[in-house]
C-alpha cells in the first residue's frame, strides 16, 4: 500500500434550494488510500468544524453500497471513476497524491438541490407509488411454491430488482432521464407471473408519472447503464418500451 496523499477538492456549496451556489476549494492532507471517499469527506468536515465553518452536507447512510443514499458526482461521473461502485464504496486508492477532485450534486430538474451535495429524489418514490408494486394485501396469498418461476426468469427479474434507487442513471444521462430506474421496476415485475395482472396499468401509470416529474427522455446513449452501481442493463429499457407500447395499444384505458 502506498503512502498517504494530499488532495485538492472543489466542492459545490449551496446553502439551500433557493441559493445560487458556487464551488469552494479545500485542501485535505494525509489521506490514507484505505479510506473510503466519504471517510475522506468526514475528515474534511472535521477540519471545517474545527475552523468554525459549516461542514459540507452530503447524503449517506449504509456505507456498504446498498441503501442508495450516497450521491456524489465526482470528476464528471456519478459515484466516481469505478464501474459498478457507489460513492461510499469508492476508496481513495483510486486517486493519486496531488489530484484535484471536483464534486458536484446530482443535477436534474427532477432532483432539486436541498443543500450542498444533497438532492431531493422523492420523485422516484412517487414513480413507484404510481405503479411499482403488485397489488396484494397482506395475507391474500397462496403457498409460495405454488408460483413456479424458472430460474432464468427469476435471475433476470433479480438483476432488475437489484436497483438501489440512487439516481446515478439520471445524473449520468445527458438528458437527465429516469428510464433505467423506471424500467428496472417495470421489467422486474414484467418478468414475474405475480406482476402480470396489472402489467398494462403499471407501465402506463409509471411512464406518465415519470414524464410529469420532469425527467428528460431516453436517447439510448447507455451512460446510465455504464454508471449504474448495480450495472442494470439497457435490456430493461427495451422491455419497458415493449410493455408501454403493448399496454398503450391494447389496454382498455382510452384516456
Amino acid at each position: 500500500m502506498s503512502g498517504t496523499m494530499n488532495l485538492t477538492l472543489k466542492v459545490w456549496r449551496q446553502k439551500n434550494k433557493n441559493d445560487k451556489g458556487a464551488f469552494a476549494t479545500y485542501q485535505v492532507k494525509d489521506i490514507s488510500p484505505d479510506m473510503s471517499f466519504l471517510e475522506m469527506f468526514d475528515v474534511l468536515n472535521e477540519q471545517l468544524i474545527s475552523k468554525g465553518e459549516t461542514p459540507i452536507a452530503f447524503d449517506h447512510d449504509c456505507r456498504e453500497g446498498i441503501c442508495g443514499m450516497c450521491s456524489m458526482y465526482i470528476n464528471g461521473r456519478p459515484h466516481g471513476p469505478l464501474k459498478g461502485v457507489t460513492t461510499c464504496q469508492l476508496h481513495m486508492r483510486s486517486f493519486h497524491d496531488g489530484d484535484t477532485i471536483v464534486v458536484e450534486p446530482w443535477r436534474a430538474q427532477a432532483f432539486p438541490v436541498i443543500k450542498d451535495l444533497v438532492v431531493d429524489r422523492s420523485s422516484f418514490d412517487r414513480i413507484i407509488a404510481s405503479g411499482g408494486f403488485v397489488s396484494v394485501n397482506t395475507g391474500n396469498t397462496k403457498d409460495a411454491n405454488n408460483i413456479l418461476i424458472g430460474k432464468e426468469d427469476a435471475d433476470e427479474a433479480f438483476s432488475a430488482a437489484a436497483c438501489i434507487g440512487c439516481g446515478a442513471c439520471v445524473a449520468a444521462c445527458k438528458n437527465a432521464s429516469a428510464m433505467l430506474f423506471v424500467s428496472a421496476k417495470i421489467s422486474q415485475l414484467a418478468m414475474l407471473p405475480q406482476g402480470d395482472p396489472e402489467r398494462k396499468r403499471r407501465a402506463e401509470n409509471m411512464v406518465e408519472t415519470m414524464d410529469e416529474e420532469g425527467f428528460g427522455s431516453c436517447t439510448n446513449t447507455g451512460a446510465c447503464s455504464a454508471e449504474c452501481p448495480k450495472e442494470i442493463s439497457l435490456e430493461h429499457i427495451a422491455r419497458m418500451n415493449r410493455e408501454y407500447f403493448g399496454a398503450k395499444f391494447t389496454s382498455q384505458n382510452v384516456k
Partner: peptide
C-alpha cells in the same frame, strides 16, 4: 432534454 437539467455540470466525463 436540455430543460430536464437546468444547471449543468462543471466537469463531465460521460461514459457513452
Amino acid at each position: 432534454n436540455k430543460k430536464a437539467r437546468p444547471v449543468s455540470y462543471a466537469s463531465v466525463n460521460n461514459q457513452s
